[in-house]
Amino acid sequence: MEYNTHELSRLAGISARTLRYYDEIGLLRPCRTAESGYRFYGEKEVELLQQILFYRERGLELGTIQEIICQPDFDILEALDGHLSALIQQKERLDTLIQTVKLTIATMKGESKMDDTMKFEAFKNDLVDKNEQTYGKEIREKYGDEEVNSYNQKILGLSEKEYEQFRDLETAIRKRLEEAVRSGIKPESEAGRETAFLHRDWLSYTWKKYSPRMHKSLTDMYVLDERFKDYYDREVKGCADFLMRAVKYWIED
């Protein structure tokens, strides 16, 4: 069965404009285009659109999705298994957060008791699970299972105070990066030095042993991998590049 643009947009719950944009960027081509200019999509295109929407729901950018589904060996069944696994993990994270909120409410009402460790346990588990889901494959290939497992254990082992400091430092780094880029400050400046060392301190909360070489390698990934880049460039474009250059200039081996 074939669908024209408007029929498929209604079926998928997205706009016809989105489908046309996917065609323009080469993400989802119609199976044929009539002389009138109408686009038509067949069974294969419908299946690919479903995959695109699954990946979008998981937070991947269009460029990353295109790299995945355009690979010659892309396997839809394997991709569906991956989606199922990711969604189950997401459900487990949400269930844990829901239970934490319920227990907190009960504690505030005097119906239960919750120690400070339990208040932050769900957030630490959520952070580890999200990192694994989004970056796990790449960072395990790059740094090895032992290094990544150590990172996860350090996150989970952070005290309440350490966890708050870790997240506050993360926020401070992003704020400094955005201010520097907006102001046109160079990475070789004093602001660049301070940001590079703050980033080093932030990594030290989770790394078993800090390494300048690994620090520089990681910031390379911030620029080369769209998911990392999007995290730092979410509000102001150029933050990931600023951080990478500041670290390379100021962090000595």
Rank of each mutant, 00 (worst) to 15 (best):
T219L: 11
A122I: 08
K142T: 07
L218H: 14
A172I: 13
N149R: 13
G110E: 04
Q99C: 01
H215Q: 03
E121F: 07
L127V: 02
T100C: 04
E61D: 14
D81K: 09
F228K: 13
L60Y: 15
K216A: 04
R17H: 03
E92W: 02
Y41W: 11
Y135A: 06
Y232D: 10
Q89S: 06
R245V: 02
S211V: 05
K154N: 10
R58S: 14
S36I: 08
H6W: 14
E57Q: 14
G26K: 09
A106E: 07
L127A: 08
F242H: 11
Q165C: 05
D126E: 13
S85C: 05
I65N: 06
K44D: 08
Y22E: 10
E252W: 06
V101M: 13
E194P: 00
D75F: 10
I88A: 13
Y210S: 10
R227H: 08
V181N: 05
I251C: 01
E146W: 09
N4W: 07
T64L: 00
G26T: 12
V46S: 04
T195R: 04
L84V: 10
E92L: 01
G26Q: 10
I14N: 11
L80F: 07
T18G: 00
E61K: 10
E2L: 03
D129N: 12
R17M: 06
C239Y: 14
E170F: 10
L97W: 07
D116P: 02
I52D: 14
Q90P: 00
L27R: 07
E252G: 00
I65Y: 12
S217D: 14
M118H: 09
T219Y: 13
Q66C: 03
K119V: 06
K186E: 11
D241L: 15
K113F: 11
A86I: 03
Y210G: 03
L243F: 15
Q89T: 10
K137A: 13
A246P: 01
E24L: 02
R227V: 10
S9N: 04
M214E: 06
K237I: 06
H215W: 05
M118W: 08
T100A: 15
G37E: 14
R227W: 13
Y232G: 01
T107K: 11
A246R: 06
Q50T: 09
D81G: 09
I68C: 07
Y232R: 09
S217E: 15
I98N: 07
